[in-house]
Write a protein that binds this DNA or RNA. Structure first.
Lengths: 202, 202
DNA sequence: GAATTAATTGAACGTTCGTTTTATTAATTT
DNA sequence: AAATTAATAAAACGAACGTTCAATTAATTC
């Protein structure tokens, strides 16, 4: 056999991405074999190489897409200038809420992006870390502005930014949709904790 | 050749553990081969199997030891009953300080214990998660007591416990000894943030 | 100093890995 | 309807994997 009836490059590529996110987040990147991936997609291993030249480039594509989506998501959620929400406290609230919702909606790719950095070559690792640093810079600038306006009490902006990122990303480690708390309640809770953490009066 | 001059089982086992922690934390468990490990220890691959029956049991041993050490460490650092430090705020301060110092002193095994859970069989995974839950229970009980005494303002004890654990464990992701902040400063900073997070007045 | 035990080597086992090559068929274009 | 391009299958490559086994030597015990 060769080309199968109804086969379509775009659909296959999307199916590969989905299956890869599922398998990598469950088994880990190194533990997932290309044969396993092909089998889950319903295709022969060789077909994968039409879409991704190597296993590592597949991982890189998934991670880059995740980070770019995250940055775009924040760009759209960020309060517009001149509004009341554009003050530091409003921006921080928007940042936390967007971050929580984005990650809860993308558990698989979040796991992949957070746990598989070691499998990237130095060059590709740097590109992902640059995107990450760009995103974290948004948080740092919010904290710096709040410190300047004396609405936040922060000892060290960089350290606080890392602490907040770790805390709010950690939600995907324990949160399960079937648990007692809803996504809204979780987001509200993290918002409150973040505001207390930076010493903002609510 | 066979047994080498000066060879000693205890030393070899310790060397295997050290090398494994180093390699796994750098490459990941699946990416580390037993041949690589043997080479770093300075021994033939077959020699590893005198100390650990399988690769997975080696990983399990490293993780269990890490968690048991963490629990022992907290047992020794925990304030004694009847002292002023035994109030919730003092216990929380001790918990955060011990946690930060313990993890900063054991970067490799922390990475292994946090990132490689997926490589454990169901049974062994459960044993590690039980130890983890036992440790987290200590934090939850501190938060519960502080809530009862009205010295902490906490919406949800479990959620807050997870948030704090994620935040303070995250220190090893970014902290490098050569950076501007000392271990003492970092610990003090996390202590302040934690107290603010639970709404304690300092 | 002989017998025993501990520690390790060297070689090999079958399996699986990521990837490549070639052939074949479906869909699209001309 | 013929020619071309896109999508896949089938088979194979050499390399690396975790692990086992038998042989060998160092250290210890008697």
């Amino acid at each position: 056999m060769a080309r199968t009836t109804g086969s379509d490059g775009e659909k296959t590529e999307a199916a590969i991405r989905d299956a890869a996110l599922d398998l990598i987040s469950r088994l880990g990147f190194e533990a997932m074999s290309m044969r396993q991936l092909a089998s889950q997609v319903g295709v022969q291993p060789a077909a994968l190489y039409r879409y991704f030249p190597t296993k590592e480039e597949l991982l890189f594509a998934l991670m880059r897409e995740h980070m770019e989506n995250l940055i775009v998501s924040w760009g759209e959620a960020r309060p517009v200038e001149g509004t009341i929400e554009e003050k530091p406290a409003g921006r921080l609230a928007a940042f936390v809420e967007n971050h929580i919702r984005f990650h809860l909606a993308r558990r698989n790719s979040t796991h992949v992006s957070n746990l598989e950095l070691r499998s990237l070559s130095e060059k590709r690792l740097k590109r992902i870390l640059d995107l990450r640093s760009q995103y974290e810079g948004e948080l740092r600038s919010i904290l710096t502005d709040g410190q300047r306006d004396r609405v936040f009490q922060i000892d060290d902006v960089s350290l606080t930014a890392m602490a907040i990122i770790q805390m709010i990303t950690g939600v995907i480690v324990w949160f399960r949709p079937e648990l007692r708390l809803s996504e809204d309640e979780v987001a509200a809770n993290y918002h409150t904790m973040t505001m207390r953490l930076v010493g903002a009066v609510m």
